[in-house]
């Protein structure tokens, strides 16, 4: 299985542990991710706030480059990238005006985009293309006894979710269960983490982050699994401020791919786990075999 791969800026920066764990896990499963040549920033939420057409041009350049590779699907792990690329696809389809501007820009640069290529999330690929059965076969160190709160955040499931439910997504739940982990019921799984507000308006943003952490702790989770670099950062990097304001909520937040790596028996050092502020504890001992 081969996919075009758009990592996005975060996976080269604050979220590098995501890429560090995603690539070996996919390799282990025989999934080849071919990074787009000279991709640019997707524009995220900030760019759209300034100029809609330019935001679409920005994203469309990546889509055009991806189509050139001849791959069937484009995979992107970052929620913001997933949303923006899908949103651009929709805008190009629905608005003749934007389509016109974007097409002019692409043509001027010698690029073409047909609008056909699906933009997908690794979770979707793993559960629907690879399949849980194949994943189960690769598990050598089951996560038995590890209580995980599955946290999806917003932009993968809303508003363009096609592979899972917008209010109660379950793909990651099922994936984690396949790894042997105990999935904690976590009704906040699609609540917003605060996005970039944690940086710009900490009072507003961190409150959302705090609730997510506190509720994961209250529901007995050992760790929160996330699918988005910004969610991971927000839930991991502000514990100082959170403790000062509301008291400690000591729970680590890791990428679901890191948990997969652990279950697949990949060396911890290769999974970027040391990049966490709040480090994950060693896995619970496996119950002795009868």
């Amino acid at each position: 299985m081969k996919y075009a791969y758009f990592p996005g800026c975060s996976l080269k920066g604050l979220g590098r542990a995501y890429e560090e764990s995603l690539l070996p896990v996919m390799e282990k499963l025989g999934v080849e991710l071919v990074e787009l040549n000279d991709w640019n920033c997707c524009g995220a939420t900030a760019y759209m706030s300034v100029d809609e057409t330019k935001a679409c041009i920005l994203a469309a350049r990546n889509l055009a480059i991806a189509e050139k590779t001849g791959s069937r699907d484009l995979v992107t792990p970052c929620s913001a990238c997933y949303l923006v690329l899908n949103k651009t696809k929709h805008y190009l389809k629905d608005s003749p005006e934007i389509r016109g501007s974007v097409q002019r820009a692409l043509e001027g640069a010698g690029l073409r985009y047909s609008g056909e290529m699906p933009v997908r999330h690794p979770l979707d690929i793993l559960v629907h293309d690879v399949g849980l059965d194949v994943i189960r076969e690769k598990v050598v160190r089951p996560l038995t006894g590890l209580k995980v709160a599955p946290y999806y955040g917003c932009q993968v499931v809303r508003p363009y979710a096609t592979f899972d439910d917008a209010w109660n997504p379950t793909t990651m739940d099922r994936l984690l269960a396949t790894l042997g982990a105990e999935v904690v019921p976590y009704p906040l799984k699609t609540k917003c983490c605060g996005g970039s507000l944690t940086g710009t308006l900490p009072d507003t943003g961190l409150r959302l982050t705090y609730i997510l952490l506190k509720e994961a702790v209250r529901r007995g989770a050992d760790v929160i699994a996330t699918i988005c670099p910004l969610c991971q950062f927000n839930l991991d990097a502000y514990h100082d401020q959170l403790t000062r304001q509301w008291g400690p909520v000591p729970i680590p937040t890791v990428y679901f791919t890191q948990l997969m790596g652990l279950a697949f028996g990949l060396p911890e050092s290769q999974l970027g786990l040391r990049r966490n502020f709040v480090r994950m504890k060693p896995l619970p001992a496996l119950p002795a075999r009868a």
């Binding site: 932009q155 809303r158 917003c192 605060g194 507000l197 507003t204």
Partner: peptide, 11 residues
């Protein structure tokens, strides 16, 4: 400006 684009309201 407080909208963090979580799209909860949209859906």
């Amino acid at each position: 400006w407080l909208c963090a684009s979580c799209y909860a309201c949209t859906v």
